[in-house]
Every structure is written in C-alpha cells, then in structure tokens.
Design a protein around this nucleic acid. Structure first.
Length: 954
RNA sequence: GCCCGGAUGGCGGAAUUGGCAGACGCGACGGAUUCAAAAUCCGUUGUCCUAACGGACGUGUGGGUUCAAGUCCCACUCCGGGCACCA
C-alpha cells in the first residue's frame, strides 16, 4: 500500500508544487473569473435609464464603445479560430479601461437562422430550446477565456423582449416615407397630412378627398419605406424560401445550401434601401473603415452617371439608360432584355416563333451562363424598329440575353464602335458599325492597323476620349469636341431641351427583399383586413410572439423546380393566422402576415440594445444613445457618431454592414438616434487558417493524426496525403478546440499565443506546437516573481539598477504605443524582452514586477491579477492606471552608433548621448576597423544622423 | 477584364518620417539536469567563404532615385480577396 502510494506520487513529485503549470493556471483563471463576476468588475455605468449610475460615470473617464460582430450560437462548439477577434477586443477594452476610459464591452447572440431550424426539423425539438442550450454552452466557453464582458448587457435576437424592438423598428420604417426634397425620411402621417391639405398633389391628378379609403391606402403604401410589392425576387425551391440579392452567389445559387435560385415575380416585403443609395455612398467618406470594405460597398451600390434617352417606337417611347449619351450618333440598333415588357407588342408576326423560342431559352438559362462575358453573343431581331432621336433614322430592335432586365431600364442603345459588347454583337450579326470618333494614330498603330473610319475593320471598339466625327444634326454639333465629358454635357442639355431624355443617375443597388418563408425568425407585426390592406400593429401589441408549433419546416421542393411556390410554416397555423383585433375602429377580423424577417434584421441594431438592454419603454434611452454613440465632433467636425471600434470578419462587407447602416440612417432621420452611422471605426480581423489534408480519394482526413515524413510529404495511417490551407473548421477536419488548449496550457497562454501570432488584421496559420512559446514565457515570468516551491513572492524591495530602470520605461512606452494601435503581437514581444532581461538579474525589484503585472494584464489578465495580488495589492487591477513612461528615463548616458562606409556597417562606436555631430564624426573615423578600411584615404563626405548612425562616403 | 491587398530565414512574423534587415516566438543544433526520458534551464542559429580577424551576398524579378532603399519611382511575375455582358 505504501509502495503503491509512493509510486502514484512519483511522477509529479519532481515538479515544484507552485510551478506555473496548466493545473495552476486553471486554478488561477477560474478563481479570478469568479471574482470578476462576484464583484461586478466589468459592469459599466449608464448616464440614464435602468442601468443609470451618474456617480460612477462621473468617476470614469471618456466613454469608449468596443464591439464584436456577435456570433451565431452554433451547437458545434468553438474552435480556436472563433475567438481571435474577441481576444483582440477584450485586450483592447482592458487596456483602455486601465487608461481610464469608461468602456462598454459585452456580447450577444445572433440566434435566429437556419441551423437551429433545421435541427428542429430533424429532431422535433423547438428551436428556442436548442438555441438557448447553445447560447448557454457558448457563454460557458467564452467565460473560460476570461473576456471582460458586462454580462448584464448580453442579448439574444430570439428573445421576445429583444425582437419586440426589432418589430418596433420595422413598424417605424413602415410608418415612414422618403421626402426627396428634404433628402430624409419623415413619418408617413406627415405625408397623409400633405395629401389631405392639398399641399402635395395626389397621383394622376386625383383629388385626395374623393378617393376611397382603400385607394388612399394604396397610394400611401406606395411611399412607405417598408412595402410589399409584386416584384422579381430570388426564389429558391431547394430552401423553400425567397432570398435577398445579397444572398445569391455570382453563379446564381443560394449562399446557404448552394441551391439554384430562380428569378420570379412574387408579392414580398421590400425595404426601400435604394432611396438611401446616395447617402450610403457619400457617408462612407466619414467612416474610419478600410478602403477594401468601402470599395466593396461602393461597387455594390454601383452608382453610375449618364442619361435616359427615349426612342420612339410603334409601342410608344422606349427608354434606355446610357453612361455615354455622347455616342448617340453611333447608335445603329437597340437591344431589349428578353423579358422586356414591350417585346410582345413590338414583335412582328413573322418573328414571333423565333422570339418566343429565344425568350424561353433565356429564361431557362442559369445566371452563371447568362453572365459569362466570354460566351459568344446570341440574340434575335424582333422585326420592329425605333427612331434614333438625333438622326431621326429607324434602327432595328433586337432582344439578347446580355441585356439584363434588372439593371437600368432593361433596354440599351447599341453603339458598336464605342462599346465592346455591342461591337461583338454587331460583328456576329452583320449590323452597321458607324464610326463617330476618330481614334488617335497611336491607337491604330498599337493594333497594327492604318488609321481608318471604317469601323468594321477595327479589331475592337474604341473607348474613351477622341475627337467626334459624323456627330451633328440641325440643332447640335459635337464634331471636333475631343473630351467625352464635354460632349456628354452638350448632348444632355440637347436631350432635355428637346424632350428626348434627361441626365440620370443609376444604381446597381436594388431594394432589399425582406421576407422569408421560414419559421425561426421575427414574425411581421402586420395584419391584413378583408380588402387586403396591410395594417401594422400598434406599439402596445408588440411583440408578436412566434407561435408554438411542432412543424417547423417550410415546404421545400425539388431544387430545380422553378415553378413551385413558397409555403411558409406559419401559413399552416390557422388559429394564429386568423385574429380578431381592435385597431382603433372596433373589433374586426384580420389575417396575420405569415412571413418572417431575414436573419439580418436582428443584427441591424443590436449594438444599440447593448446600451440599454433592460429598457422596456424604448429600444434605447435617447440620452444613453447620445452618450455612447453620439457624434464626436470634438474629434473632427464631420464625425458621424457610432461605435468607437467594431471588430469582425470581412465576410459581412455588403450584407450586414449595408443593412445596418440603412436602418440606422432611417432611425436618425426620424429623430430616434443622434448618430448618422452605426460603426464609426471598423477593423477587420484575419482568420486563423490551418493545414488540411486530403487522402488519395480527395477526402479530408483528421489533421491531428497526420504525420510529417519529409519536407513536404505527409502520411495518414501510413498512406500519403496532400496538404492544403483552409479556414479552420469541421468540414476540413482540422479544428482545434480551445478546451484542448485550456487543458494543456490555460486560457492566458492561449490568449497570448493568438495575439502574438501576427497582426490582428492578418490571417495566419495555426501551429499547435508554437503555443508552448507563450507558456514558457509565463512560466519564466512566474518564476521571476514567485518561488515555485512555496508560492511566496521573491521580489526585493530594492530600487532597480539604471539599465533595468531604463528598459522598464522603454518597454512601458512601447507597450502603450503598440496596444493603442491594436498591435498586440509587438507589445507582447517587448514584454518578453523585458522578462528575458529580468531573468538575468539576481532578483526582481518589486516596483518592476508590479509594472510588469499591469502591462501584462490586458492580454493575460488572470496571471496578471494573481501576481498583482501576490505583490500585496487588494482587489482587481482592472481599473488601475496603466504604467506611463517617464521621458527622462527613456535615454541612456551613452549611445552606440553603427559606422557605415558607403552604406555598409564597418564598425561601432559608443559616445555620449548628447555628443555633438563633429565629435561623433571624429570618433567614427578613428574606429579601428573603419580606419583600416579607409586605409588612410580622406573621406569625401561624412553624414551623421544624430542618435542613429554615421555613414562615411569614401 | 476591372478594383483592392500581399510577397522578408526552415516556419509564424519584426523593422516611426528612407537610417544597423531578420525583434519576439517556434523549430533545429550543442550543452546542463536525469539511471533514462519528458519537462525545465543555458548557449548557437540568414546563406556562402575563412583556422581566425574579417569578408562576399541577401527582403518575389528587372531597372532607377539617394550618402543610404524591405521602405520611394518605373516596368513585370506570382499569390490572396472582391466585382464582373451593369449599358
């Protein structure tokens, strides 16, 4: 028995009991996490509302709102790639708190969406149960990381007390219209008043008071910022729901599930985001975002300036949008999209069969085929013509699938000499290619061609500035002009003066399709009366709670069945759909809207609910919003307001970030928020990548079980596998869970490793074997301050020597600079350098150890708290002032200069820091190796850069 | 095709306004400790030449500006991301 006991103890008996091991780290970390929670260390006071604490606000410094893109609470659990951004924001929040800022930092959950619903469909368990279990699990995993969240402020988009306000915002948007003259949204009641008072003319010359209630309602509905309309939408039979443009991939499939998407006309809810196109574009200038994201948003909004031109035809005027109205004299045919509404009326009887066949073929084509610009041009003449307004001559009308119904007017004027697509089309079908610009001789020369105005001989269209020819009629003459911009201005005034068109701005951005035929989303707070008029429910009837059911699945169809129709799960709940309500004019029966909102709805405004999460009177108290998000005009006069730092992945460049800006601007226009933009500064963190391995069949194998057998050779269970890079995840079988890291090293080591791998905005490969480096750093630090056998501190109360003192202050200075700029990798390197220096000392002075603990706290908070405590301090260091360097201690008495000859270092000299340049020069010239290399020759020139280096030109 | 990024040792990455290229970490090599191993600690580590002192070369490629270039300019190659028949 004694022997067995001794043997059991043997393996650990050599290791000192108070060494910084994974077990000790775990003990320290769990203890401090409890301490923070018990003491409300990270609870942040508000200036007003339920969380108001004006005294605490007065005690703290300037506010700082730090925000992560909130996660979807997946049931699969976290891998080490997920929390990269969270560790960054936490370290920054902790640092800024120690710099005296009043930091708001918390995390909620974006919990509506497909995975929970699909899980519910498979198991019959209500998605709310699954979601809440997943949230609880994720909270536990994130807590173990030691994130300094104000947990009182956490929200979930699926909580009725949260989506009550999502519905309230929908209601607010529904009850608003865009006043183009004022260039802002206004309450719809003001529009009704203007119609009623005659201040605004009703459409089609109608007299407002003569219209019936239904007629009035329809006119009003046409102005609402949220409206339901019959419109071309993206129908995805495989998912059983419609999806937004932004959720369709370039090859015409659904982002979720990768099913084919078909364009169909259906009645759906839309948001009039297009009214904000110019402001969404212009206000990008005010944002501290990367150019990459701004460019993506600009491309998505797709503003282009040009003109609308009307061409007369037998079916009335056909309008086209063009960015090059200056080329109107070169128009030799017109092309309509196959779906253009005038095609049917214009088509000559002889062409009907061909046109119908082409239309059918185009409709059946997937978008990927239709938008492949390398494909040969196809099209059919419809046997009709239109009149070119500048020449008065008839031009043939064709249909072709390179013209898209969804952009501009769905019709183009074709200028083959000035547009490559039109040029290719004209060549394919032998159409005229009149030249209207004289390209330069150089243009012809580079194409191996003698200058000619016979454009059929050109190898391609000419695009850009060149003198105009053949471009005059009785009332306009462009000939001789050589700038496109000049010609555009001239022709635009002519078009307007003669009623043939007008200058126009066109956008690629479409209105936002806002309804989905699913279960697990926010119900619309909308009912329909017997006339089919939509009524939004009053505030006091919110929330409209998602009804209970045990049938969560929308009806899905064969993925290629374009003719199927959506059937929402809520449609089936008759008891819920049919309601008796009093909306102010007595109890009547209504039918509920059975759509739900898209997943983006809840994330359009969540940052504001963090501000005032328990307010049951408003979505956020105005004073609270102004305090945390109001414009910081002291920083710069055009500051738009919003979150001070928003960290997340680049994948939300156009979806979430565009929708949230739109909602925020509507709320701003209507006076509900003081900020024009939700996110003043956006930082895109990189991804953690990992090796993934495929076997000979192309199947991914467990990356952890792969062995390296050569420089670039790997095997799995003895068979060769090939390596590739990918995002860490289940599908590539290369996940590493944070739990494994906690068990092996502890949370502080994991945090340090993730922050030290590289800059926060760069993607970097995960290497489990590298993690040990940060573990060793913490062990060395621990050993420098704590006796590994007794656990007692071993610091001395003597003052540090000069070198240590200077190094401490240099480190303090550098760490402050690096951490303020989110450069934790270099901040950590500086701390390691200081620690390596301390390791060489006989003992560490207490003052240095204390400063070290404070500097380490943002990135490795648990061990820092423990050391701080052991060094004799009470409570948490979370609000203790971060060390500040004494400028007088940053420089030494002497400084070492490298001495270069012709740019190559030949020696080093050490001189007094304040030595004048001529003294430095003199010292440099007598340095033995320098003198030897010069070999007695006089230098031609000597450059002394004070404090840096000496270069001798020999 | 267009628009953004990027390229530095065996690996991840450092390097204010042009001013010592390779901080810091991993790995590798050598040593200490150990019966041995793991863990831990100490040292070396861009490549090449040299016994050594020292020297040559070196930041994707080719030019240029400069006393001095990873950094600035011109031309190009490759890699990553976004957009794309948008009139």
């Amino acid at each position: 028995m004694h022997r067995l006991g001794a043997m059991a103890d043997a393996p650990s008996s050599d290791i000192p009991t108070m060494r910084y091991s994974a077990e000790l780290a775990r003990d320290i970390e769990l203890r401090w996490q409890d301490f923070w929670q018990t003491n409300g260390t990270f609870e942040t006071p508000n200036p007003a509302g339920p969380l108001a604490d004006p005294d605490a606000i007065a005690d703290r410094g300037e506010k700082l709102f730090v925000l992560d893109m909130f996660p979807y609470p997946s049931g699969k659990g976290l891998h080490v790639g997920h929390p990269l951004g969270f560790i960054g924001t936490d370290s920054f929040s902790r640092y800024m708190r120690m710099r005296g800022r009043n930091v708001l930092y918390t995390m909620g959950f974006d919990a509506f969406g497909l995975p929970a619903e699909q899980f519910a469909v498979q198991t019959g368990q209500h998605p709310a149960i699954t979601t809440n279990e997943n949230i609880a699990n994720m909270r536990r995993q994130l807590r173990r990381l030691g994130l300094s969240h104000d947990t009182r402020r956490s929200v979930s988009t699926t909580d009725p007390e949260y989506y009550r306000w999502t519905q309230w915002i929908f209601r607010t948007i529904f009850e608003a219209w865009y006043d183009v003259d004022a260039d802002r949204a206004r309450p719809i009641s003001e529009l009704i008043d203007e119609f009623a008072a005659g201040a605004r003319a009703a459409p089609d010359g109608a007299v407002w008071s003569d219209l019936s209630g239904v007629e009035q309602a329809r006119i009003i509905d046409d102005h609402r910022l949220a409206y339901s309309a019959e419109a071309p939408v993206n129908w995805c039979p495989g998912l059983g729901t419609v999806v937004a443009n932004e959720e369709v991939t370039a090859d015409g499939r659904s982002e979720r599930g990768n099913f084919p998407v078909f364009t169909r006309n259906m009645r759906q809810w839309m948001m009039r985001i297009t009214t904000y196109a110019d402001r969404l574009l212009d206000d990008l200038e005010l944002l501290d975002w990367t150019d990459a994201i701004k460019t993506m948003q600009r491309n998505w909004i797709g503003r282009s300036e040009g003109a609308t031109v009307h061409f007369a035809s037998d079916a009335g005027p056909i309008s086209v949008f063009t960015t090059r109205p200056d080329t109107l004299f070169g128009v030799s045919f017109m092309v309509l999209a196959p779906e253009h509404p005038l095609v049917h009326e214009l088509t000559a009887d002889a062409q009907r069969a061909d046109v119908a066949a082409y239309q059918k073929a185009a409709a059946a084509k997937k978008d990927i085929d239709r938008t492949d610009d390398t494909r040969d041009k196809t099209g059919v003449a419809i046997g009709a013509s239109a009149i070119n307004p500048v020449t008065g001559k008839p031009i043939p009308i064709w249909i072709a699938d390179y013209v898209l119904m969804g952009y501009g007017t769905g019709a183009i004027m074709a200028v083959p000499c000035g547009d490559q697509r039109d040029f290719a089309f004209a060549q394919t079908f032998g159409l005229d290619i009149p030249a209207i610009q004289q390209p330069s001789d150089a243009w012809f020369e580079s194409r191996g061609l003698a200058p000619t105005l016979d454009a059929t001989a050109w190898p391609e269209a000419h695009i850009g500035d060149a003198p105009y020819v053949n471009s005059a009629n009785d009332s306009i003459d462009l000939n001789g002009i050589d700038q496109v911009a000049t010609a555009v201005a001239a022709i635009n005034s002519w078009l307007e003066a003669h009623g043939h068109g007008e200058a126009t701005v066109n956008f690629k951005l479409r209105d936002w399709l806002f309804s989905r035929q699913r279960y697990w989303g926010e119900p619309f707070p909308v009912v329909y009366d017997d006339d089919g008029i939509a009524h939004v429910l009053p505030e006091d009837m919110l929330p409209v709670v998602l009804p209970e059911t045990d049938s969560f699945a929308p009806r899905t169809f064969d993925a290629d069945d374009a003719d199927s129709n959506p059937e929402s799960p809520l449609d089936r709940l008759d008891d819920w759909v049919h309601v008796e309500l009093d909306l102010g004019d007595g109890v009547k029966s209504y039918r509920r809207d059975t759509n739900v909102m898209p997943q983006w709805a809840g994330s359009c405004w969540y940052e504001m609910r963090y501000l005032d999460p328990t307010n049951d009177e408003r979505f956020v108290h105005p004073d609270v919003e102004r305090y945390w998000m109001g414009p910081r005009t002291d920083e710069r006069p055009d500051h738009p307001g919003g979150v001070d730092l928003y960290v997340g992945g680049v994948e939300h460049a156009v979806l979430h970030l565009l929708y949230a800006r739109f909602w925020h601007k509507v709320l701003f226009d209507l006076g509900h928020v003081s900020s024009r933009e939700p996110y003043a500064r956006l930082f895109n963190q990189g991804y953690i990548l990992a090796n993934a391995f495929k076997d000979e069949r192309g199947i991914y194998v467990d990356a952890l079980a792969v062995e390296q057998v050569g420089d670039d050779a790997f095997t799995f269970e003895g068979s060769p596998v090939t390596r590739e890079w990918g995002k860490m995840g289940k599908s590539l079988k290369n996940s590493v869970s944070p739990d494994e890291m906690y068990d092996a090293y502890g949370a502080d080591t994991l945090r340090l490793y993730e922050m030290s791998m590289g800059p926060l905005d760069a993607s970097r490969p995960w290497e489990t074997r590298d993690v040990v480096g940060m573990y060793r750093f913490l062990q060395r630090l621990w050993r420098n301050i704590v006796d590994e056998d007794t656990g007692e501190v071993i610091v001395t109360d003597t003052e540090p020597d000069d070198e240590t003192e200077r190094m401490l202050h240099v480190t303090i200075e550098a760490v402050n600079t690096e951490m303020s700029h989110l450069r934790f990798n270099t901040a950590i390197a500086k701390l390691i350098e200081l620690n390596n220096h301390l390791t060489k000392l006989d003992s560490v002075p207490r003052r240095v150890a204390s400063s070290f603990a404070l500097m380490l706290a943002p990135v490795a908070p648990h061990i820092a708290e423990e050391l701080w405590h052991k060094l004799g301090n009470d409570g948490s260091l979370a609000h203790t002032a971060f060390p500040q360097a004494d400028p007088a201690l940053l420089t030494a008495d002497t400084v070492e200069y490298p001495v270069q000859i012709n740019g190559k270092v030949r020696g080093r000299i050490t001189v007094a820091t304040d030595a004048p340049s001529d003294e430095v020069e003199a010292a440099a010239l007598v340095e033995p190796n320098v003198a030897r290399t010069l070999d007695g020759k006089a230098p031609r020139k000597v450059i002394v850069v004070p404090g840096r280096m000496v270069n001798i030109v020999a």
